[in-house]
Computed example of a mutant assay.
Amino acid sequence: MATRRVERTQESRRLLVAAAAELFAEKGYRQTSFIDIAEKAGISRGSIPWHFGNKLGLLEAVLDDRLHAMLTGFAPPASPRLDDVLDQVVGFIRLPVTRLFITLLGEAVEVGSPIREHFARLHAALRQGVRARIAAEALPAGTTPEAFTVILVGAVIGVHAQWRVSPEAVDLEAVRATLRALLPPDLGQA
């Protein structure tokens, strides 16, 4: 009996996270209500505070879940070749789960936003992951690995946002080829 209750609890939590992720990606965090989430999940809205405490707790669960799903598809390449890393970046942009991050970014940049700190941590993790793959000696003279990393992460976020808004106007393969041409060939040999 206890096992069945645990399974139902886990399933309810999973349904709520999936519904919230979809709605947050469509409508944004602030515009999504408990009622919207409960209706989409087919679960009573009283379950949300029971599972997550509050809406911010649910958002944290959604971001953790989506970040885990995203990183699962973005494992370090077997070789540090720049072409392999660029292939992963384009694959990352195309993942449906990453739409959530672009939708919420507009809310995250507002001072006092409840999700601002989550995005600061996400961006720090992205910079750290990119920085770990950069061979400092491959950078142009006068360039620091930290500043170069900020530029790369910013470029990917910007390309991602543009592609989500106008996929017909942004050729990801051409962007990949151009980025490849601009980057030092031995950049990924860290």
Rank of each mutant, 00 (worst) to 15 (best):
V130K: 02
V130I: 08
V130L: 00
V130Q: 11
R131M: 09
R131C: 08
A132V: 14
A132I: 08
R133A: 07
R133H: 09
R133T: 06
R133K: 12
I134W: 11
I134D: 10
I134Y: 04
I134C: 04
A135Y: 05
A135I: 02
A135T: 09
A136V: 08
A136C: 11
E137V: 04
E137R: 04
E137H: 15
E137Y: 15
E137P: 04
A138K: 03
A138D: 05
A138I: 05
A138V: 03
L139Y: 01
L139P: 01
P140F: 11
P140Q: 11
P140M: 12
A141N: 05
G142N: 04
G142K: 02
G142D: 02
G142Q: 04
T143S: 13
T144I: 06
T144Q: 13
T144H: 01
P145N: 05
P145C: 08
P145T: 14
E146H: 05
A147L: 07
A147M: 10
A147D: 10
F148R: 03
F148P: 00
T149V: 06
T149M: 06
V150N: 13
I151M: 10
I151K: 11
L152E: 04
L152H: 00
V153K: 00
V153C: 07
V153I: 09
G154P: 00
G154M: 00
G154K: 00
V156C: 11
V156Y: 01
V156P: 03
V156H: 08
V156K: 15
I157N: 13
I157L: 15
G158D: 08
G158V: 10
H160Q: 08
Q162G: 13
W163K: 09
R164W: 04
R164V: 08
V165N: 14
V165F: 13
V165Y: 08
V165E: 15
V165R: 14
V165M: 14
S166A: 15
S166G: 12
P167E: 15
E168D: 15
A169T: 05
A169C: 06
A169E: 05
V170E: 04
V170A: 01
D171V: 14
D171F: 12
D171T: 12
D171W: 04
L172H: 02
L172W: 00
